[in-house]
Write a protein that binds this DNA or RNA. Structure first.
Lengths: 243, 243
DNA sequence: CGTGAACTTGAGTCTCCTCAAGAACTGTGG
DNA sequence: CCACAGTTCTTGAGGAGACTCAAGTTCACG
């Protein structure tokens, strides 16, 4: 029933390939080996279900097996901020290490399955599997690098460029997982993309429309087809000279 | 010559107090104990000097002892992005773990001193001092939480509110180190603040002017005096009703 | 005391946001 | 299979906040 084992943690290798400098890629984590040390259970989620919510006690990390989720920071006053999208191989919840409770909502955007790695039990496993500890530390550091690369992007790019960068990021993450980088379905709505990119949903729509008008992409509702990868990349790097 | 030992890692307890939920505070790291395991040397920097630059090989972490530094992400095309400001007790360079080279410039904004913790030698020390490993992991996770809280702030607050939040953050970090939270000197220029807050330097100036006009603060060049902490906090939470 | 860098202030512009309406898709039940 | 409601997406018109450009002022440093 569940495609077990050999999930790699290689956390969003694709994203970093796009946005940050090259770096070593972490080796996969073997869930079967890990389950000898800690009680690993799989959890299934349907679209719209929460993996956990802000304020709940932090007692596990999660490794995404299948599906697609979003993480969403929530302030006391209700302001919301999508902080990222997670897919197969991504670790979820690591940013809560050292905190008593989660600060994020994590929501499945489609039917998903995750491995639950109890915390702090997983720490004991780390002590016995140094490579696991290393993997975790790398994942944390990579997350920081990714967040900061996005910060640079959001602060220096126009709305259209941000959306282009977002699509290229998704494309390379899909490719890293063996899916087509040129043709995929957005699992999230325009509003979620906007929150992540610091834009309003109307602006996301307009940017997609303009990119389509330039022949870079084809947009059919949530179905995206990248027609000219180089042109998309060119948009980001300001080659908007020739009309 | 150097005020040794008992530097705490409690990384920016203040910042998190302002921006994120409460959480446990990491205990201090004892440099003297640590130096039994790894070769810890102190490095001195004068204002304007680089601790390291983007592209240089990653071979050490740094613990700030005295002074004030900024970290600055640099893209290949020259775009720059201030990612944070570091003071006593902050760990610098942890985001480069797992990468071959640094992606950031780190520059001293005043005369500063840091402990250099060679990497990966420090990993072996971690294996022998589990609390050190824990401290490092916590610092990484806290960094992610801090970055994301700022992302939420930047995406949902106006220029004036962002500057107010920035001042309050600095204030509480100063307080956590035993300095006055109401009276301090900005070590960085308006342009650096702007880069960090996703604003232009003129906009930072105007925001400071407006906050001063409201009686929240007093600004004398880089010298800041917070006259009404509550009012400053009120600015962030939208209490701009009564004229 | 002079030079250069940093800061301030103003006027005008532009990008993105706000508000609002309409269209397309989803899925539910008859 | 179709109609309907609800959600999501699209598109437009108008406005606001931050940016750009430019000049003047203050400060730091030699």
């Amino acid at each position: 029933m569940s495609p077990v084992a050999e999930i790699s943690i290689l956390p969003t290798k694709a994203r970093r390939a796009t946005l940050t400098a090259a770096q070593a890629v972490a080796a996969p984590i073997d869930i079967e080996v890990l389950s000898k040390y800690v009680n690993v259970v799989q959890r299934k989620l349907t679209a719209g279900q929460y993996l956990y919510r802000a304020g709940q006690p932090f007692n596990a990390l999660y490794l995404v097996n299948v599906g697609f989720l979003k993480t969403c920071l929530v302030a006391e006053d209700g302001r919301e901020q999508v902080t990222g999208f997670r897919m197969r191989g991504d670790l979820v919840g690591i940013e809560s290490i050292g905190a008593a409770t989660h600060e994020c909502d994590v929501v499945a955007l489609e039917t998903s399955g995750v491995w639950e790695l109890p915390y702090p039990a997983i720490l004991r496993a780390c002590a016995q599997m140094p490579e696991l500890q290393e993997r975790l530390t790398w994942a944390l550091a990579a997350e920081i690098r990714s967040d900061r690369s996005w910060k640079l992007a959001l602060n220096s790019l126009s709305a259209e460029q941000r959306v282009a960068a977002f699509l290229l990021d998704l494309a390379s993450r899909h490719e890293a997982l063996g899916f087509s980088p040129r043709h995929f379905v957005l699992r999230m709505g325009r509003a979620d993309i906007g929150s992540f990119l610091a834009l309003k949903h109307e602006t996301v729509t307009r940017a997609l429309t303009r990119l389509a008008g330039q022949g870079c992409i084809d947009v059919q509702w949530r179905e995206i087809r990248i027609l000219d990868m180089a042109a998309l990349d060119g948009v980001i790097h300001c080659e908007d000279k020739a009309a």
